[in-house]
Design a protein around this nucleic acid. Structure first.
Lengths: 301, 301
DNA sequence: GCTGACCTGAAACAGATAGTTCAGAACGCT
DNA sequence: AGCGTTCTGAACTATCTGTTTCAGGTCAGC
């Protein structure tokens, strides 16, 4: 049993590095409420938060310094400096290794489900993007950034959330955008007003929404362009759509996943932000002038 | 672009990261013999050697502490702690996500933006899950699956979509769920009715919603349990929350990303489906009897 | 071989740091 | 309710930190 330098709570005497991160996660249960806050703060800003002083970490966690000390003691370290050394050690080894953290052992219920969920979601996402046609993607971006067009956005039972999400961002970046949340008069009016300069964005994922499908058909018949975001099984709207972007829906549960679709939506927003450039930025600033709570541009320093 | 925090000897105002390592290498010539020993020791054990004490680094280099101090001064830092901070900063970037590398290079508009978006989103997602405490996750699942509890779900400007998403699924799996979509009488009534058997689920991501925060505080003061889903910068609600689940919000655009948060939500739903087991399945079947369009269980063959 | 400039480290110093003590608070358990 | 246990932070302290001071040492140049 050599190397008794940095393996306190790692436990099983097998893992050579015994990541501090995992040690913390495993010890979660044994901790008190405030100590758990420390654990969360440590993981949230890892590893930087563990390389500052006790006082700093305590402040970040919203607890007092003694709690941090007790936290380190409970993990099995002789003191805060020793925990720091362990982190430094780890940083020295890894300095970039991304997914070394996923172990193999599984027992407790929740963990298995979570692990499975993570992998399912990630592979769905990966696959979705790898199957995405970048040419279609660009076409959609061009359509969305064309301010001479009137945009309507609509979605189905769950995908209405994405329709909402997209239109909210569109509002921030350009004018002439409308979300068609409910069936009814609003949609009828939209059909009546539709023409060649109208752009309808449809989110339709299983199970496909009949009302949305009919609405798309009607809009199309009035000359509107139609962009469809759907799953890989293709909504019936695909038949009449001008551009189709698909995403996978494989989920860790019996329900479908919207994560890849949302990722696609965010990618569209990113590309659109890039496309509208200064024009959109000006609009954002104008909007912010009226809404002190929205300062979306200051995120990236 | 000042930010005179960590860019002393980077010098030429060109290098984007101004790596400490590179700063040292460039300054080699200007150093004295002993100082150069320090430089070599620092680079040899980088970054760990720079995260210890002055005395340690001096010993590793075979020189006296003052020499280390003079070394840091010669590099342009105000003191050893400042150099340390610069290194920590660097480590923080490099360790987690490979976000740092996508600085500037772009040619073909749509495609590169898309590529960048994909990578950003995926790394955010990966990082979020790696930082997730599975213990907290399990606690939330347990709370959500406890049918003796009355559940209230609320969200902020954008995260209301996730609140909606979660509550929609909760409705399918169990009873006594209510989405608090708008401020107003509905929320007041919820506060009045709240008690120890109430569970409030709060989605609060930057920019944090004051109304939601106040609502959470009020609910908590009435004895309700509070589960918070937030970003890694922690909503103020974290102070009073019983459990906190964080996700990253780094996005390919100036806006924040909700993809990791949605993935987390879906993981919760998956685990919850598992937890409620047959009871939830029966409920689903009962619901389907009244809604021929919802057949969520047939997805996985 | 003397003089000046420049390194270099021992010793001393001021300030910050981790860790301890203790009293009050919160909690769970009959 | 009342008890004992556990948790938590304010105040304190001993220690270690980075830094400055200063004297000894090295070397080049006429």
């Amino acid at each position: 049993m050599p190397d008794a330098d940095t393996t306190p709570a790692g436990g099983d005497a097998d893992g050579p590095p015994a990541s501090v991160r995992r040690a913390v996660q495993q010890s979660m249960e044994r901790l008190s409420n405030s100590e758990r806050k420390v654990a969360r703060a440590l993981l949230a800003g890892y590893p930087g938060s563990g390389l500052t002083t006790v006082a700093d970490l305590a402040a970040a966690a919203g607890v007092s310094p003694p709690t941090v000390i007790r936290f380190t003691a409970r993990l099995g370290y002789d003191g805060y400096p020793q925990l720091q050394r362990a982190i430094v050690h780890e940083v020295n080894e890894g300095m970039g290794s991304p997914l070394a953290q996923y172990g193999d052992t599984r027992r407790s219920e929740g963990e298995e489900v979570l692990d499975h969920a993570v992998r399912t979601i990630q592979s769905s996402l990966e696959r979705s993007f790898s199957e995405l046609s970048s040419w279609d993607f660009k076409r959609v971006v061009r359509l969305l950034s064309d301010e001479s067009r009137e945009i309507r956005v609509v979605g189905g039972r769950f995908s209405r959330l994405l329709a909402d999400y997209l239109s909210s961002h569109l509002h921030l970046l350009r004018g002439r955008v409308q979300l068609m949340s409910e069936p009814g008069l609003e949609r009828l009016a939209a059909i009546a007003d539709a023409g060649p300069s109208t752009l309808l964005v449809v989110f339709d994922y299983r199970r496909y929404d009949e009302a949305v499908g009919q609405f798309a058909v009607d809009m199309k018949s009035r000359g509107s362009s139609v962009v469809l975001l759907t799953d890989n099984w293709l909504s019936p709207v695909a038949k009449i759509a001008d551009v189709v972007l698909t995403s996978r829906v494989e989920a860790p549960s019996p329900f479908d996943s919207l994560v890849p679709a949302m990722a696609l939506t965010e990618a569209l927003i990113a590309a659109l932000t890039d496309a509208v450039g200064d024009r959109g930025r000006e609009r954002l600033e104008r909007l912010e002038a009226f809404d002190p709570q929205a300062r979306h541009l200051e995120d990236q320093a």
